[in-house]
Design a protein around this nucleic acid. Structure first.
Lengths: 166, 166
DNA sequence: CCCCACTTTCAGTATTTACTGAAAGCTATG
DNA sequence: CATAGCTTTCAGTAAATACTGAAAGTGGGG
């Protein structure tokens, strides 16, 4: 396979994968483009290579930076902004976990807290509170586990985790 | 808060949460409805309570069953099919992990295998292969970790995992 | 073997989500 | 302090996704 074809297929696949991980298709494609590029890219470069509009590039670039999946790279003598990808996959995963935890898990925990206070002493209310309590317990565990995951070094995590389960 | 209001808010929130986990909004809402209901529900019940069409209920119900998030429950003397939710959250998470791993991670692993074979001996091709090799290594680790996760008992997992990272 | 109660399918439609492009906003430089 | 070079914003539009409802399919009971 030729290098160019390889890059294209990778960008496409990374976009598809991203879109099911809360990263939009285009955001993931820009990340992929930067990943397989050894030089920093400007908005114009990305516009041309992915055939997308300036506004789209700008919005998604800023999102990538916000999520910690790409960085601005200023090139001396250039007024344009250039970008490079975060290439350490453990950092990429951590960033995504953190962003989604905040967006999704934390609001759910808050809701579950509220819902343990529903009125009523009948069986129906008791049952409801029981389900909610179970979920809350589980969600808190998941929350702690994810917190831990993003704190530890990924090599340590994987090697220890895998040796645990062998 | 009244029980009914609590249930409604829970169904709505669970739907929103699900929709960012690859489970569609409606699918998650049906699951939530079954979760907070202690009796099995028929299609007609769900249609009425969530105000959605028969086709929609049918499609999403079958998906829930396919994913292992709900089960058919036959009630003697009834011709209708009834459904109950899987209430064990560790099973719910496992089911979702398995479904998504198959859909997403495995195709990516296959692609990465192909891409290590791109032609060329120049620096550009070497760099590309290097990025791909890194991703492959990381993806395989993630794949193994997820395989392990779905195999182990969740209480064991959490307690051991948390004690590791303390 | 046909009817009735139910389930499934799917073309059409509605809703949500993402993208475009032009205009407005910055900011370094002369 | 005016302009050129670049970035940001956002109303309008396109594309993707989910839902509806009616018609077709299925199978148990009479």
């Amino acid at each position: 396979m030729q290098l160019e074809e390889g890059k294209e297929r990778f960008i496409e696949a990374w976009g598809a994968l991203g879109s099911s991980w809360g990263v939009t298709r285009t955001m993931a494609q820009i990340h992929a483009l930067l990943l397989v590029s050894n030089v920093p890219k400007s908005s114009d470069d990305v516009m041309e290579e992915l055939q997308i509009s300036r506004g789209n590039v700008n919005t998604n670039m800023r999102m990538l930076v916000e999520w910690g999946l790409a960085y601005k790279k200023l090139i001396p003598g250039e007024r344009k902004e250039f970008f490079v990808a975060e290439k350490d996959m453990s950092k990429v995963v951590k960033s995504i976990v953190i962003a989604r935890k905040k967006r999704e898990l934390e609001p759910m925990l808050r809701l579950l807290d509220e819902l343990t206070g529903v009125d009523g002493n009948d069986a129906a209310a008791e049952d409801f509170r029981h389900v909610i309590r179970d979920l809350k317990l589980y969600s808190h565990k998941a929350d702690s586990a994810l917190d831990a995951l993003v704190k530890v070094d990924s090599n340590w995590f994987f090697s220890t985790f895998l040796s645990m389960i062998k």
